[in-house]
Amino acid sequence: MFAAQLALNALALGAAYALVAIGFVLVLNATTAVNFGHGDTVVAGGFLAVALATLMPGELAVPGLVLLPAILALMALFGALMSWLVYLPIRDRPPVTTFITTIAFGIIIANGVNALFGGAPRSAPTLIGGGGFSAGELFLSRQSVAIVGVSAVLIAGLALLLNRTQLGRQLRACAQDPEMAQAVGIHLTRMTVITFALAAALAGAAGLLLANQFFVTPSDGGVLMLKAYIAVTIGGWGSLRGAVAGALLIAAFEVAVASQISQPVAEGLLYVTLFIVLFFRPQGLFGEPVGQRA
């Protein structure tokens, strides 16, 4: 029974990580640049949830689910703003420039949040209340179930958007071949801004989901970004499905090791794993199509 309990925890954590990793991949595919501020965007979403909850009138305890649409919308705006500041002005420069601008943006978020809220861990409201259901000896936490549910709905929604709508086709076209997409009349800049908005909205949702059970601290961004990166490296560079699989795998690993030994050891081993993977597969576990013509 203990194992089943852990499995649900791992699934909840993995579901939230999946949202983080998907946002990371969306931007990666659209810009071929790593967004080093992505983890801090998740933190921003978490603290936005904390702030919105405290803004609510009186002692009225608002379920987190009510906040979700507002967080998605505000974080989408935030993402669009981010693209205007850190990517669009420098998109013709070498990728390392984007790394630096996103690092700068991340440090602004992290320390802005730190100055506004202080450095201590904070917690956002639960999605649909605390407690849980008992089924025999098995106890299902309501929050964990809600996290998995919300993530599933968001991921399904994204899949529908990308695969079944004209906008989704345009977004995918820009990710696969920006020049060709422009040649057939797709507004590349608009698609880039939308991609950043989508990624930030998902990251914000992940912040809300993580911020109750696992708390949120201004300095969490780096670790979250590394985990998204490891998930993507394991799952296959650029693959959305792989990112979800990688995120679930990391969460399972983390929950299992943390339950047997401790959280720091789990995190440390994760980094060691990354080094081992990179040692044997410098281009990631499933490789990245790399071509170079003299």
Binding site: F36, P95, V96, L226, E267, G268, G284
Partner: peptide, 23 residues
């Protein structure tokens, strides 16, 4: 393991080193 990596792989591997030492 690290120096063979290019661009963001190198950046993130070195970031992982920093986070590991902090841990």
């Amino acid at each position: 393991p690290v120096l063979r990596l290019e661009s963001h792989y190198f950046a993130l591997a070195t970031l992982a080193l920093d986070q590991g030492l902090l841990l």
